[in-house]
Design a binder for these strands. Sequence first.
DNA 1: TCGTGTGAACCATTTCACAGCT
DNA 2: AGCTGTGAAATGGTTCACACGA
Lengths: 244, 244
Amino acid sequence: MSEAPSDPNRRRIPEATVVRLPVYQRILSELLRTGAATVSSERLATMARVNAAKVRKDLSLLGSFGTRGTGYDVAFLRSQIDRALGVDQDWPVVIIGIGNLGRALVNSEGFSSRGFRVTALFDADPEVIGERVRSVEVLDVAELPAFARQDPPTIGVISTPAGAAQEVANTLISIGVRSILNFAPRVLTVPPDVLLRYVDLSIELQVMSFYESRRQADAEQLSTSGGDPPRLGSGGVSRPPLQT
Amino acid sequence: MSEAPSDPNRRRIPEATVVRLPVYQRILSELLRTGAATVSSERLATMARVNAAKVRKDLSLLGSFGTRGTGYDVAFLRSQIDRALGVDQDWPVVIIGIGNLGRALVNSEGFSSRGFRVTALFDADPEVIGERVRSVEVLDVAELPAFARQDPPTIGVISTPAGAAQEVANTLISIGVRSILNFAPRVLTVPPDVLLRYVDLSIELQVMSFYESRRQADAEQLSTSGGDPPRLGSGGVSRPPLQT
DNA sequence: TCGTGTGAACCATTTCACAGCT
DNA sequence: AGCTGTGAAATGGTTCACACGA
C-alpha cells in the first residue's frame, strides 16, 4: 500500500536528536579544522558529553554512514548532517532589532554561514538605520513589507526590546514568514502554523543557579548532620545536565 | 531511619522541569505586569505552549501552591519558583569577552536582575578595558585572578571569540569557579565537577532549518504524487517543537 | 580486533483521568 | 462547577549488549 518504510532520509527524527545534530555538526567542523579524517562514536560522544550509544543511534537515523572497525569519515558525516538539517539549502533570514544582540547575531559564525543568508537588517531607530553591519544595510522596519515583496525571507529573527516584539512578529506573519526565532524576553502569540522558537539568554543562567543552590544545600546538609558522603549518581549532587 | 521523604523542596526535580521553570517564571512576571492576580494551569500552559497537565505536575513538584477551583496566586507562585531556582539568592557573575554579545548579556533583563549580580567584566582588548557598561567597569582579563581573590564569583560567563574560550575557561577553573556558561562556539574541556553549559545562538536556527526543509519536502511530495493531505499529528508536517 | 548498527530492556517524561478540595 | 494534585497508563528517549562487517 505505502512506500518502503526505510528511505534513508524521510525517516522520522526525534526532536531530541534534531537538537543534538547541530552539536555534532560543530564538533565535526572542529575536527576537520584539526585535520582528523575519521572519528569514532566514542570520541564524538566524549566531545559532545553524551553517551556513545546515543551518538550511534542518532547518526544511524540519518543512514549508515560509518565503517565498522574504523568509525565515521569526518567530512562525509558532516555533509550528511548538513543535509539532514537542511543547511545545505539557502535560507534567507531577516533580523529585526539591531542593538548589541542583533549585531552579535549578524557577526556570529552560525548565522552568516552554513545555509543562512542574512538578506537584510531592520531597526526603528533613525540613528541605526542606514548603518552597515557586516556589509548588510540596516533598513527602516517600516520598509519590511516592501522589502519582503522583492526578496521574501524564510526565517525572521526578532532581537528587539521586549515591547516591540509582538508587533514585529505580526508584521513578519503578515508578509508570510512561517518560522520565527525570538530573542526578545516576551511571550508571543502566533497562529498555529507558524513555527516559533525562543532563545532566552538567561534561562541557562537560571538553570545554573538551580544546580548551584542544590550544591550549596548539599554542602550544608553535609556539615550540620554527618550525612552520607556526596557520591555522584543517585543521591548527593544532582547530575550535571548536558548542554542544550 | 531516614527523614520524611516528602520535604516540600529538597525533592528531586527532573531536568526537563528545571528547564521549564524559567519559562513559567517569565510568564508569571508578565502576568504580574498586566495585573493578573491568579492564573490557571490551563492559561499558563497556553502561554508556555505546553500541556496543562504538565504545568500542574511541574508545579506540584515544588509544593502544593494552587487553590482548587481558583488556580495559582501569580505573585506567590512566582516567588516559589524563584526560590526553587535559587534566584532569591545572590550569585556573583563575571562576564569575560565584552563584544556585542557580552554587552547584550550585561544589558539583558535576566542577567542584571533576579539574583544575578554582575560584579565585573573582563576583556583583553585595550580599547575596551576601562570602559563602563551599565556602570560596571571592564577590567583587563589578566586581573581576573586578583579580582577573584577579593570578590570570588560563583558563575563565569564566556562570551569571547572561539579562540580564547578554552584559555578563559582554564583561568575560571583555576580561581575556583565551578559553573561556567559558554557562549563561544567552541567545545570546551573541563574537570567533571565543573558544571558547564553551552548556549549556541545558531542551534535554534539550525533546528528551524530542519523543520523548514521538512515542510518543503512535504509540500513537494504533495504536489508530485497526490499524497495524503498534510494532517498535523502523526504523519505530515512534523509537530512544531516547543521552545527551549 | 575494532567499532558500527540495532533489537530489546530500561528509564524518564508526558499525558490521561479522576478523586478531592474550594 | 471549577481547577488542582496525582496515581497509573502511554509515550518517548536512553542505554545495554551483541551480531555483524571491515
